[in-house]
């Protein structure tokens, strides 16, 4: 297996801030083409998990394997090369505020491809059209709504046709209709591009609608307690905490 196959394996991972251990003994696999949900209650370390997967924070212990390459055991240039094959959509969109949407999407293309300015313009147009924002090229992030910023964030994350797309709370702060449209967009992109999607969320509607695989981080036990298809987990789990989470706190 090579890193090009796009599988990510987390092995015996511990996340910590200083002496404070957030989660330990995390072991799971994200398969190619999965829509993989990292779920759990507030403060369980979902976003921290994502920062470890995308190379922003080192784990206290354990491994993250991209293919069979030990990501955190590699030197920084190798890590950069691996992570350049991933796209990230941050919770706030994190669009560069001093640039237009076109410039936001064009920047990685200018830096990492040999495309001509004309070709870059075409790619930018395509990416924006894919997320339903054709014609917004010259808008600045501050001139569009929160939902649009998220979609533009996805367009930028897709700029280099990544093998894996990471989403941090994609539907946070969106109304139900916009959240549903975003879910549909994620599904559509996975179906049409075959991209592996890793989504950090606690939005149950999204989890059940689009998740094909998942891991549940239990904040009270400080470790993962389940992994698998979310719908299947709901039907089969006997873990009271997971059941409580997946049923929105309903007592069974």
């Amino acid at each position: 297996m090579t890193e090009a196959e796009g599988h990510i394996t987390v092995q015996d991972l511990t996340m910590a801030y200083g002496d404070f251990v957030l989660m330990r003994d995390l072991t799971f696999t994200i398969n190619r083409g999965d829509i993989f949900i990292i779920m759990g209650g507030s403060g369980c370390g979902k976003s921290t998990m994502m920062t470890i997967l995308i190379g922003l924070k080192a784990p206290a212990k354990g491994k993250v394997l991209y293919g069979d390459v030990d990501f955190w055991g590699s030197d920084p240039p190798t890590r950069d090369r691996i992570i350049r094959r991933a796209g990230v959509m941050y919770q706030s969109g994190a669009l560069w505020s001093s640039m237009t949407l076109a410039e936001n999407i064009a920047l990685p293309l200018e830096l990492y491809t040999d495309l001509s300015p004309g070709q870059i313009r075409e790619v930018v147009k395509l990416k924006l059209a894919l997320v339903g924002m054709a014609g917004f090229e010259e808008f600045y992030p501050s001139e569009i709504s929160g939902g649009m910023q998220k979609r533009a964030g996805i367009a930028r994350a897709m700029a280099l046709d990544p093998e894996v797309l990471f989403f941090d709370e994609p539907s946070a702060g969106l109304d139900p209709v916009s959240a549903r449209r975003l879910d549909d967009l994620i599904l559509e992109l996975r179906e049409s591009l075959g991209t592996t999607m890793v989504i950090v969320t606690h939005e149950l509607a999204s989890i059940f609608a689009i998740g094909s695989n998942s891991v549940f981080l239990d904040v009270s036990k400080r470790t993962m307690t389940a992994t698998g298809n979310p719908n299947q987990l709901l039907a089969e789990t006997r873990d009271p905490n997971l059941r409580l989470f997946l049923t929105r706190g309903e007592k069974s």
Binding site: L56, R81, L107, L111
Partner: peptide
Amino acid sequence: MQVNQEIDALKTLGI
């Protein structure tokens, strides 16, 4: 930019 995760976005693009 740090608060808005714009710097994280640069780092994850390898910039």
